[in-house]
Design a protein around this nucleic acid. Structure first.
Length: 721
DNA sequence: GCGACATTGTTTTTT
DNA sequence: ACAATGTCGC
């Protein structure tokens, strides 16, 4: 068999990984070292050389986009549709398993998936029913608690009672939340994985079946797996299966949402005869960019160790611009982009990266003023828009009357005279009688416990849903969606609504019908799912941009997080200031600071040809004008690779060559951001920020005992430690 | 039910 | 500063 085409275009390390005999393999793939390529070639190798049936291969990623790309590239390489091969996200694959084995998993056949928003709403209701005050028990915190427990595979009953009151309450919330989910037949994202894990773990026959089927499990972005995902992988691979994992510990940037970088370390301990292969040759960036990246990431402790290199030249130096303020920063970037475009560069080859979304605004304003087309990533996605979620809620309620989340959402949307009072009545009935809200509404009408007016309103609603449920029987998917939009009054509501936004909303709703129409083609061997159910699941699981929409030539603006996996000729890494990047919230803890550093590393390694760093000396943040200290990361870069651009005479602070943040001016002598100080009353703390100068200067100090305080420097009498 | 005011928080994001 | 909620009065 001719396999030369599979290996020809690979380097030695890549070849080693792709052609290794079946076994547990961990590929430590640096940025730009061809990790997806290796993964895809490995699949092709297994199928073509090792004669593994595509049916026995499972490939898992995190995002739908990555899954799609993997599938496409695999099919292109194999030259055949890889039918039977399971390529998808952890959630997608779990969903598939649960749909197939809903009975064994203890789920209703028509179970629906709760997205983050719906989950939050449901938690709010749980808090209310437990009579917990939302200000003392923030729903966000409860959601975080529940999700992180689930991600560790822990049910409410298995949380050790530490005697801590807060924890006890949260366990109660978790318990009730779970009951409500079960009653409503909905599961949240974390539950998707946890249920699947339990399903396989507790079901010998099923587990054996899948272990025998999937002898080869491949994982992308392994450094981003959390505990439950790792457990799932190991369970499916079993004793006789093989895991092929690709990851980069230096690009682990999702620790804050449960990803466990340690999984990389555990891998070789947990799985027998692990072979570790490093991919260090970089095909993306110039030598100078790589040197900067290597030098920075070297400051992290406990790395597995990897040093990127390239055999293409050094290229341009990395530019560093010290802007006067954030407006100057944006202006500088825009002008540079304009020069690039005038020189024949494509706008889509330029990325502006920043730490937080709020930073995009100034760039947007500047780019609009200078008429440079741009596109901002992030923000609300199609299926997350309110009007779309309303429409979906109608559909879901028609499919499953017990779905309280949907009931709440649309019972009075568009307004039909069912106000808070009526709802409270229904909610109370639901609680007391242990009914779904739908049934509670029926109950209220039967028992005549509502005012006449409310009665009629509820009746209208109930009849509407009943009529809709009946009428959509037997219709094609898009007709069902269209029908519901027309008769629910939603479309009409947004049509009569005035304002520019209303027009967009209406268009979005129409777009939903088109999406439903397009979706019909994708409904594959729908595993005992109606097209409508499949469409609903698709909406939740893949709420992303419908697709990579017509690639206009736009400058790309995004956060560092969303830049992972992408590459650009020119990268502007902006807002390199202490407190912003590394972010305030991550500065204290060494572990989180290292994650920030990895984030910076990710940013740097996005650039192919030219990297420009910038920071502002003054920045308006949360309404306050702040003096900024250049990010410590700037000081951690190799001076030889950096070229400072400072056209402004007024700026005179040295930037490179210190890793310590520079000193404050005026009478604030001796006090630096990040320094430990002590105060007579408040005790010890760390200087977080400062503003103003001379005798008016104020510093923000985070005291260990007293918390964060702003102090006027001339009165505070701080002692530097 | 809706508009006017007040309060609140404000890293990163996928599924 | 600012947007996104929540509360209140009509």
């Amino acid at each position: 068999m001719d396999i030369s085409d599979l290996l020809d275009e690979l380097n030695t390390a890549q070849r080693e990984a792709v052609s290794a005999p079946p076994g547990n393999i961990l590929v430590l793939a640096g940025a730009g070292s061809g990790k997806t390529r290796v993964l895809v070639h490995r699949i092709a190798w297994l199928v073509r050389v090792e004669q593994v049936s595509p049916y026995g291969v499972m490939a898992v990623t995190f995002t739908n986009k990555a899954a799609q790309e993997m599938r496409q590239r695999t099919e292109a390489l194999l030259g055949i549709p890889a039918a039977g091969m399971w390529v998808g996200t952890f959630h997608g694959i779990s969903h598939r398993l649960l749909r197939q084995h809903w009975q064994e998993a203890g789920l209703p056949q028509a179970f629906q998936i709760l997205d983050a928003q719906d989950q939050q709403r449901l938690i709010k209701r749980v808090l209310k029913s437990l009579e917990l005050d939302e200000s003392r028990w923030p729903p966000k915190q409860a959601a975080w608690f529940i999700n992180s427990r689930k991600e560790e595979g822990v049910r409410p009953g298995n949380i050790p009672d530490s005697g801590d009151l807060t924890t006890r309450q949260l366990i109660r919330v978790y318990t009730v939340y779970e009951e409500m989910c079960n009653r409503m037949g909905v599961i949240d994202f974390a539950e998707l994985l946890l249920r699947t894990l339990e399903l396989l773990r507790d079901n010998e026959a099923l587990l054996t079946h899948y272990q025998q089927r999937f002898r080869h499990v491949l994982v992308d972005e392994f450094q981003d797996t959390n505990s439950i995902q790792y457990a799932l992988l190991r369970l499916i691979a079993g004793k006789n299966g093989f895991v092929f994992a690709v990851g980069d510990d230096d690009q682990s940037i999702y620790g804050w949402r449960g990803a466990r970088i340690e999984n990389i370390q555990y891998f070789s301990k947990d799985l027998p005869n692990t072979q570790i292969i490093r991919l260090e040759q970089n095909y993306r960036s110039t030598g100078n960019i790589l040197k900067a990246a290597n030098c920075l990431i070297n400051k992290n402790q406990g790395r597995l160790g990897k040093e990127l290199w390239t055999d293409s030249g050094d290229g341009q130096l990395v530019d560093l611009y010290a802007a006067y303020n954030e407006i100057d920063e944006a202006r500088f970037v825009a002008e540079r982009v304009q020069q690039w475009v005038e020189g024949g560069g494509k706008r889509s080859e330029v990325a502006i990266l920043y730490r937080s979304n709020a930073q995009s605004r100034v760039f947007e304003e500047t780019f609009i003023a200078m008429q440079i087309p741009y596109r901002v990533y992030g923000g609300l996605r199609f299926f997350e828009r309110a009007e779309i979620k309303d429409a979906l809620a109608y559909i879901r309620l028609c499919v499953n009357h017990e779905d309280d989340a949907s009931f709440e959402r649309i019972v009075n949307q568009p307004p039909r005279g069912i106000g808070e009072r009526t709802l409270d009545m229904i909610r109370a009935t639901a609680r007391d009688q242990e009914l779904s809200q739908w049934r509670a509404a029926l109950h209220c009408m039967q028992t005549d416990s509502l005012s006449n007016r409310a009665m009629v309103a509820v009746q209208v609603f109930v009849q509407l849903i009943e009529r809709l449920s009946e009428q959509i029987q037997g219709l094609a998917l898009f007709e069902q969606v269209d029908h519901i939009l027309q008769l629910s009054g939603l479309l009409e509501h947004h049509t009569t609504e005035k304002g520019e936004k209303a027009q967009t909303r209406k268009e979005n709703l129409e777009e939903l019908v088109s999406a439903a129409r397009a979706f019909e083609y994708e409904v594959e061997e729908n595993e005992n799912l109606t097209p409508l159910d499949a469409f609903l699941a698709h909406a939740v699981l893949e709420s992303g941009e419908t697709q990579g929409d017509a690639w206009e030539d736009c400058v790309q603006m995004m956060t560092l997080h969303s830049a992972k996996g992408l590459e650009f000729q020119q990268v502007y890494l902006c807002g390199l200031e202490e407190g912003l990047f590394p972010h305030q919230m991550s500065m204290e803890e060494p572990g989180r600071l290292e994650e920030e550093r990895r984030l910076c590393y990710v940013g740097i390694t996005r650039a192919r040809q030219h990297l420009v760093l910038s920071f502002a000396e003054n920045r308006r943040l949360h309404g306050r004008e702040n003096f900024c200290v250049p990010s410590r990361f700037i000081g951690e870069l190799p001076a030889g690779q950096i070229q400072e651009i400072r056209p402004r005479a007024m700026v005179s602070r040295p930037i490179t060559h210190h890793s310590r943040p520079s000193r404050l001016g005026g009478s604030t002598e001796g006090i630096n951001v990040g320094q430990r100080v002590t105060h007579q009353k408040f005790g010890e703390g760390i200087v977080l920020n400062y503003e103003g100068h001379g005798s008016h200067a104020r510093v923000q100090v985070n005291f260990e005992k007293a918390g964060s305080k702003w102090l006027v420097l001339s009165y505070a009498n701080l002692t530097v430690l």
